[in-house]
Design a protein around this nucleic acid. Sequence first.
DNA 1: CGCGAGGCTGTACAAGTGTTTAGCATGCTG
DNA 2: CAGCATGCTAAACACTTGTACAGCCTCGCG
Lengths: 217, 217
Amino acid sequence: MFSMLYMRSVRDDRTARAVIRDEALRLFAARGPDGVSVRQIAAAAGVSPALVVHHFGSKEGLREVVDQHVLDTFDQALAEMTRPGAPGLYDPAATGSLAEAVLRHLPPDSPLPGYLRRLLLDDSEAGRTLFRRLFTVSQGVLSTLSQAGLASEGNDPAVRAAFLMANDLAVLLLRDRLTEVLGVDPFSPDGMRRWASEVIAVYGSGLLAAAPREEEP
Amino acid sequence: MFSMLYMRSVRDDRTARAVIRDEALRLFAARGPDGVSVRQIAAAAGVSPALVVHHFGSKEGLREVVDQHVLDTFDQALAEMTRPGAPGLYDPAATGSLAEAVLRHLPPDSPLPGYLRRLLLDDSEAGRTLFRRLFTVSQGVLSTLSQAGLASEGNDPAVRAAFLMANDLAVLLLRDRLTEVLGVDPFSPDGMRRWASEVIAVYGSGLLAAAPREEEP
DNA sequence: CGCGAGGCTGTACAAGTGTTTAGCATGCTG
DNA sequence: CAGCATGCTAAACACTTGTACAGCCTCGCG
């Protein structure tokens, strides 16, 4: 009666496999792989639990596919913003914040930040890969800024690059907590502005420098 | 035959209840409450699973007791190092690192840092309480340093305090990852020295300042 | 048309979960 | 001494978990 094409919603032309992957991504990001059952993923995707196993072999297999998918997506975004001539990243006024830059190119309700957060925190192979990649980028940014005379690599370039990266990631890792105590989401436009302002001030001339007058637009 | 006293090991005079609590603390820190079963906790404590429930009502009850225990222990350590006249914390050369200060007063294999890490990351009531407390301390330190002329509160004191706190916590949250890319545990004596050195440099005069010559003792 | 392949489901199973219950043994108290 | 509370265990419960199996339906190809 209904052809395969009509099995999928008119507004959703993804294959069932892709739907499962996307729903798993969303749920894994929110509750972690151990906090979500195959049945819940299947229900969210509107399929039977057995189909999940059919397409991905096992729950662990699904996790690996989602990990790789997220890593690929992230790499793509990263390549786009570190390509020669890309604006912003090497601008000292941008604080070199990778997290901020990536977030900007994502829909506000994207599950990707949450998933990346878990990758960085849980110790998985994909997480280690991601972290190494980020560290390399951080070292590259610092080196470039240094050669341009916009920053110093310090006595311990590796540690300085790690310090800057860790500070950057901290906002992603503690987002909800910071939102609570500050009363503003640090990833919202307003939050980003306020956060970046302080980061620039401290990175620019240290904690001791007197606060310059706030400029009103 | 054997009195109750001899039921406990000669070298361990804790009550069974305390043993269970401590083992739960250790296992929760390592794998998270959801990653540990009541049976595993009981086995680690050398008791039956039913005794865990007998003493704590439920697994959730046990978690709450452990949460409170950790919070109490932490508050005690915090009170000790923020008491008037305590050395170090307000010393600008100490970077005001709370994490570092607390870590120093703990045995190297203590499960407490790991548990605190989870409290900060998972969103539980105890975690929110802990985070608020830390934020208050951070605000206090910044304010004190400011009044002493050792730092500026910046245009946005709340955000600056949050920034400093988040940076501090990032090392705790990403410890394993940082250890991998740097080749040194940032909480080891050597790691602390290298990390603190860069933090002091950046907080002292910003990223741009030329690196001063490394002083050899 | 016939027929195989693949997407897909319903059912079942073994293992592990948190928790309940009944009961044992010990030490304290009347 | 009698009796009771307490610390503790073994067994069983109801439930959820991941996964295997058998079979249905529809499409595409000969």
